[in-house]
Simulated assay, not measured.
Amino acid sequence: MSVTEEEVPADRVVETLEVVLRAPPFQRSPKLARFLRFVVEEELAGRGATIKAYTIATQALGRSPDFDPSLDPSVRVEAGRLRRALDEAYAQNAEALEVRITVPVGGYRPRFGPLEAVPAPPEGASVPEPGDAPLPVTESPRAVVAGFSPRGQAAVIALLAGILLVLCIDLGLTLSSRLAGPPAIPRDVAVRGR
């Protein structure tokens, strides 16, 4: 359950959700509307702990079961769009809403609170996305590189190794053809050409 859910009855959250979903940002983007409805309904049903990038992608955004959130940042990107759409919806409909629904940066579980209890970010403030946070410093020499998961790192290394191999083969063929000199012309072809 979300931290602030105790303070707001579920029926008020549902009423607010319906008003928010009628706001222009969500009318323009059915994908964002599905995303928001999914996370709010899952949280209210007591399944907030299962709200992860994979479940959002496969159950709300229509992605296939082979979706890999470590290789595809689309859920994180949509979450950023969702946060901006929520801010816009609240700016446009503040008088009609009693409950603020937020999706805090760093996760996808929604929070619910009285409208005045959860202030909107200041105008023009940039809010980092979950993947934009600085990587923690670890003592392991095998620390995460450039935000890639170990599986992503292996894929990048394999790709670079393949490119290096192709370049080495190409260089080797070029050098061997130059060292061999011009191709030999068979004697009978040389005689016929005269």
Rank of each mutant, 00 (worst) to 15 (best):
P30W: 07
P119N: 02
S64I: 06
L135N: 02
L167D: 08
A57Q: 08
I51E: 00
E18Q: 13
R47G: 02
G62F: 03
I157M: 09
P186M: 11
R187V: 13
S140W: 08
V127C: 07
K31V: 15
E41G: 02
A120I: 07
D66G: 00
L61Y: 03
R187G: 09
K31S: 15
V105K: 09
E78R: 12
P122F: 06
P122A: 15
L44I: 12
P122L: 11
P25N: 09
T16G: 07
R12Y: 13
P121G: 03
P110S: 04
V191M: 06
L21S: 08
A120D: 07
Q59H: 11
R47F: 02
A85F: 08
P136C: 05
D188L: 11
V3S: 05
G48A: 12
I51L: 05
V77Y: 14
A57V: 11
D87E: 10
E139F: 05
D188N: 13
P69S: 13
T50S: 13
E15H: 03
A154E: 13
P150D: 08
A10G: 01
L71Y: 03
E116Y: 08
A96E: 13
R83F: 11
G152Y: 05
R22I: 02
Y90N: 01
T174D: 04
F26R: 01
D87G: 09
P9M: 06
A23H: 04
E88W: 06
V127M: 07
Q92V: 07
L160A: 11
E116K: 12
I157D: 08
R187P: 15
P30E: 14
Y54I: 08
D188M: 09
D170M: 09
Q27R: 15
A96N: 11
E139D: 12
L164P: 03
P104Y: 07
I169R: 08
T102D: 14
K31G: 09
A161P: 00
V3K: 04
M1R: 10
L173V: 15
V20R: 00
L173M: 15
V19R: 14
I157N: 03
L135A: 14
V20C: 07
R178D: 06
V105T: 15
A57Y: 07
F35C: 09
P121A: 03
P24R: 08
R28I: 02
P141C: 04
A117S: 15
F38L: 07
P110K: 03
R34D: 10
V77M: 13
V166D: 04
R22P: 00
K31W: 00
P73H: 14
P25I: 10
R142W: 12
R28N: 11
P25H: 09
R83S: 13
L44Q: 11
T102S: 15
R47E: 07
V156G: 05
D132Y: 04
M1V: 10
Q92E: 14
P114I: 06
L164Y: 06
L17N: 05
L173W: 11
D11Q: 12
L173H: 09
V99H: 03
A23V: 05
Q153I: 06
P110Q: 06
E18T: 10
A180S: 15
V189P: 03
G172W: 11
G131S: 06
E5C: 03
V8L: 02
